[in-house]
């Protein structure tokens, strides 16, 4: 490679002759990204009784090169939703900026000030009472995880339909809005995924990338179905996810031993971005046969 980025990826002039620039002439069809460049590997997530736990390592790979080792791939959207991004990192950064704009818009339209209910008694209400009523007004508004998931699904499907996909597989973890028809319904743990084609589905446990092969079977042993979700607590869920991050570090060559972990419950989001894979033991590696140059 030389110092001219325009020449990168094209045949070298000194070997093949001058580059035929007619290929870049105007009037040519528009072209878009056909593959991701800098990528993040697995995101894994698991529902439990009162919330969801989600984790992703802090690595951004350039092909097989571990290029950036402090890229945070979990993003808090608000107190009710956390996103985990697998796939292209630049598309993740684009979505990050886009979601920031969305959050600002949301706070303007559904903040407690707009649409404040007119009340005949509000004139004589004390300042505290009013503040309290504003808090109540704000409850149940703003985007919950299910709203965000639906929006991202439509966004990614639109982009793939433009033949210009955002090369990500995203997990959305958090709490959903309660069903207004059900009396005394409370926000439920919510976990769904959406990929670069706009394909969307949910499950008690989800994993993207290599994690879908390596972590998902382990997570399914912990929560085989929605019934099991109601039985396990936060501690069990977090332990299972940490175990999976260790397995991924052992066996996924595009992974890192430093990761981010977020827990979403009714109390809000706890996001930690400097977790480490603890208690490693590579003894099992000696017994492995059949990779690379080993024959027996």
């Amino acid at each position: 490679m030389n110092h001219l980025p325009q020449a990168w990826g094209r045949p070298r002039d000194d070997i093949y002759g001058a580059y035929n620039h007619s290929h870049l002439a105007p009037g040519q069809p528009t072209t878009h990204t056909k593959s991701p460049i800098v990528t993040g590997t697995s995101v894994i997530a698991l529902k439990f009784r009162d919330g969801v736990v989600i984790a992703a390592d802090n690595l951004a790979s350039y092909g097989s090169l571990a290029r950036f080792t402090d890229v945070k791939r979990l993003r808090k959207f608000n107190d009710k939703a956390v996103l985990g991004f697998g796939g292209d990192v630049s598309d993740m950064q684009y979505l990050d900026r886009h979601l920031n704009a969305l959050a600002v818009r949301e706070n303007y339209s559904s903040g407690s000030g707009a649409g404040e209910k007119a009340s005949s008694t509000s004139a004589e209400a004390s300042e505290e009472e009013r503040a309290e009523s504003l808090d109540n007004e704000g409850a149940g508004t703003g985007m919950a995880a299910n709203n965000l998931h639906k929006y991202l699904q439509k966004l990614l499907y639109r982009r793939r339909s433009d033949f210009n996909p955002l090369w990500n597989h995203i997990l959305i973890a958090g709490l959903s809005t309660p069903d207004p028809k059900v009396p005394d319904a409370t926000p439920q743990p919510f976990l769904k995924s959406v990929d670069l084609l706009g394909t969307a589905f949910g499950a008690p446990s989800l994993a993207t990338g290599f994690g879908a092969h390596l972590a998902q079977p382990i997570l399914r042993r912990v929560v085989p179905d929605e019934e099991a979700v109601k039985k396990i607590d936060e501690k069990t869920a977090v332990e299972a996810v940490r175990e999976c991050m260790k397995v991924l570090w052992y066996r996924d060559a595009r992974s890192l031993d430093r990761y981010s972990l977020a827990i979403v419950t009714g109390e809000g989001v706890r996001l930690s971005e400097d977790e480490r894979v603890e208690g490693q033991s590579w003894e099992f590696a000696e017994g492995i046969r059949g990779y690379g140059t080993q024959v027996v």
Partner: peptide
Amino acid sequence: RLTYDRPILLSE
């Protein structure tokens, strides 16, 4: 309802 999975706010 289609893009955000929620009923629109009356104020909106």
